[in-house]
Simulated assay, not measured.
Amino acid sequence: MITVLITYVIDPAKVDAFEVYGRAWIHLVNRMGGTHHGYFLPSEGANNKAWAMFSFPSLAAYEDYRHAMASDADCQKAYKHAQDSGCILSFDRTFMRPVLDGASPEDLGL
């Protein structure tokens, strides 16, 4: 499994527009075979940072998603919304390997 963490710098005056964008992508990623873990919007602290996390079963599945989204009409609508609203100033992607199962200290040999 691969998890993508996207760190956004957003326009603080356009958080509502960014939330619309995020809600669209949660639907789109899930529809296209991923598992979206949500968007995390500013509340306290920095007012221009937001994050999103989603997973795919493998890097190959993520690459298939990236290829498919390039020609998907709904994905293009979501991109256009972000572009037209100016809600996203910049972003970067980090690829991570999740650890999702816990174990007792005894089971871990601690």
Rank of each mutant, 00 (worst) to 15 (best):
W25L: 07
A68C: 01
Q76E: 03
F18P: 02
L89P: 07
L5D: 02
I88M: 12
T3C: 03
A13W: 05
V29Q: 00
A24W: 00
L100N: 11
G109H: 12
A68M: 01
I26W: 00
E106Q: 10
A61T: 09
V20A: 10
F40S: 11
V29G: 00
D107W: 05
V20E: 02
S90Q: 12
H36M: 09
S71D: 00
L110A: 14
E63R: 15
K80T: 09
G102F: 15
L28H: 04
S43Q: 15
A68L: 01
S85V: 03
L59P: 05
E63K: 08
M1Q: 10
F91C: 08
V99K: 13
H81C: 06
A73Q: 00
L5R: 05
F54W: 03
A52R: 04
A50W: 03
A78N: 01
Y39T: 14
A24F: 04
N30C: 06
Y21P: 04
Y62S: 01
R23E: 06
V20Y: 06
V99C: 13
H27P: 02
M32T: 02
W51V: 06
S55E: 10
G34V: 04
P57A: 13
E44C: 15
P105S: 11
E106W: 09
D72L: 01
R31V: 05
Q76R: 02
V4M: 04
T94W: 08
V20T: 15
K14M: 09
K14R: 13
D16E: 15
L110C: 13
F91E: 04
S58Q: 08
L100C: 14
G33R: 05
F18H: 04
I10T: 07
Q83F: 14
G45K: 15
A52C: 14
I26H: 04
K49C: 12
P105D: 07
M69E: 02
D84S: 11
Y65D: 01
G102E: 15
S71C: 05
C75Y: 01
R97T: 12
P12W: 01
P42Y: 11
L110D: 13
E44W: 13
D107L: 06
A60M: 11
D101W: 12
A46R: 13
H27F: 10
D74G: 03
L59G: 12
A70W: 01
F56Y: 08
D64P: 03
A61H: 12
K77M: 02
K80N: 07
A68G: 00
S90A: 14
P98R: 15
M1N: 07
V15N: 09
G33L: 08
H37R: 14
T7C: 13
D84A: 14
V15I: 12
Q83R: 09
P98Q: 13
N47V: 08
N48E: 02
L28D: 00
F18C: 04
Y39L: 08
C75R: 02
Y39R: 07
L100R: 13
F56G: 03
N47E: 10
G109F: 12
R66E: 03
Q83C: 09
C75G: 01
D16A: 10
G34C: 10
H37T: 13
P98E: 12
S58W: 09
R66M: 06
R23N: 11
A13C: 11
R93S: 07
G45C: 15
Y79L: 04
K80D: 07
I6C: 09
A24M: 10
S71W: 03
A61E: 06
V20S: 08
G109C: 13
E106N: 09
P42K: 12
D92P: 03
M53A: 11
H67A: 13
R97C: 07
